[in-house]
Design a protein around this nucleic acid. Structure first.
Lengths: 239, 239
DNA sequence: CGTAGCCTTGAAGGTGATCAATGTTTGTGG
DNA sequence: CCACAAACATTGATCACCTTCAAGGCTACG
């Protein structure tokens, strides 16, 4: 179950927050104001942080681990809309006006920590600071940009779309965009890849096992490693 | 060619702007501050308002008509990402930081008018007003929400996706969501529908001519009318 | 030790893309 | 105002990519 830790060394938390892009340049005191009344939530693997349809009464930041944002169709099919990794902001755009219900669920991928900030805090503190609003927008812009890229690849064969997804996810870190091998920073199942691309598990598996054979990628557990980014990039351009 | 009208009755323009959702509740004087140095741009059918890759040095509001936001792939394929109708804000999220190049092109669908506001104005006026930023965010949220809905339908048959698109576009107006027939407020070709859904013209035509025969929709020129919204909604739910 | 989640492989079948050809409407320049 | 080009709509035939269905193995976990 999700556990709430209200007693964690508060100073340590502030320090952790000040390392995030979102709060870059803010003083500890300022950050303290912004996250007052917030709580750190621990979620285990596959545990729900937010449930689609519930009232949107908080937003927050991913501290460690990752969450997938899922939309569940009436017929039970699930679509993954976004992978939120550490530093990512979730739900901020819903914090306005009256009642809003969550358009998606958030589910942890592996043990993760999330800083849950109450809606009131947003309305009173965040929403009055243009600089902060702009920073939040940054995250939205990134998400929009992913949507754009994925939509533009709708007519490409599945292999190209999978390749592009893997490259994007590894780029998130973009430590060294050399021809070196790159790890994908989140544990990712074939099913999740399929649900992200609107495809079927089996098809994704067929595509990826080819790459495993030709040593373009390798998987152990659910850690995918891109062994040959150059070849994978070539795959992503296939017509 | 695009024409710029810097002498239009300025008062009339202000009045027009004050009728937009974006400026709802703002005084003429306030609006005047926000749009100082802006120009009304006239674009003809199929004419480009913005070109993908160009520098993002302005943003703005659609006054009349409509624009489609297109992403062109290196291989020449075009994907339509968004239909911006009157009142919609375009490009605002790009108005920050240093240099940014436009991720999409904007092309007029029929004769349209656009209020082009210089980047500087955004940075100095808009970006300092939380209330205004939140309003702009509203438009982004809507766009995100469309992306979500479309992505969630990726596994549905083409007919369902076309139906959903038509319903969404007619809902934009959402004057009366009765079972009455509804007009789609923008001239729309089958090719554009295909490019929106990542499909082919021929397939879209096959789907839609069925509906024409069964009197669910009708087309004259490029004006599509939904004759039977209920049946079309049923189509959109087909597995 | 049994269930649940994940991975894999094979076979069959369908949806929709592609190619090709033609009609229709719109727009443009002589 | 006519002729020609460009954009749009349509229909048919073929075929590939993926989905679906089925069955089995593997690992983790209570």
């Amino acid at each position: 179950m999700a556990m709430i830790d209200s007693r964690t060394n508060f100073l340590a938390l502030l320090k952790e927050l000040s390392g995030l892009e979102l709060f870059d340049g803010y003083s500890m005191a300022q950050i303290e104001d912004l996250v007052r009344d917030s709580r750190v939530v621990y979620t285990g693997h596959r545990e729900q942080l937010y449930r689609q349809g519930d009232e949107a009464d908080s937003f927050g930041v991913v501290l460690t681990g990752a969450y997938k944002l899922i939309k569940t169709s009436p017929d039970g099919a699930e679509t993954i809309l976004h992978f939120a990794i550490a530093g990512d902001v979730i739900g901020a755009l819903l914090m306005r006006a009256q009642y809003t219900s969550l358009p998606v669920s958030a589910v942890a991928m592996g043990p993760s920590r999330f800083l849950k900030i109450p809606k009131l805090r947003y309305l009173e503190e965040w929403a009055t600071k243009p600089e902060l609003l702009m920073r939040v927008q940054n995250f939205v812009v990134n998400r929009l940009s992913h949507f754009r890229d994925q939509k533009a690849m709708l007519k490409s064969p599945l292999a190209a779309r999978v390749a592009a997804l893997l490259l994007t996810l590894s780029d998130s870190k973009s430590k060294s965009d050399q021809n070196q091998k790159q790890e994908i920073p989140i544990p990712l199942t074939r099913k999740e890849i399929a649900e992200t691309l609107g495809s079927s598990v089996e098809s994704v598996i067929r595509v990826m096992s080819e790459w495993s054979k030709s040593e373009i990628i390798s998987t152990s557990d659910q850690q995918i490693t891109i062994l040959n980014p150059v070849l994978l990039a070539k795959e992503s351009q296939r017509l």
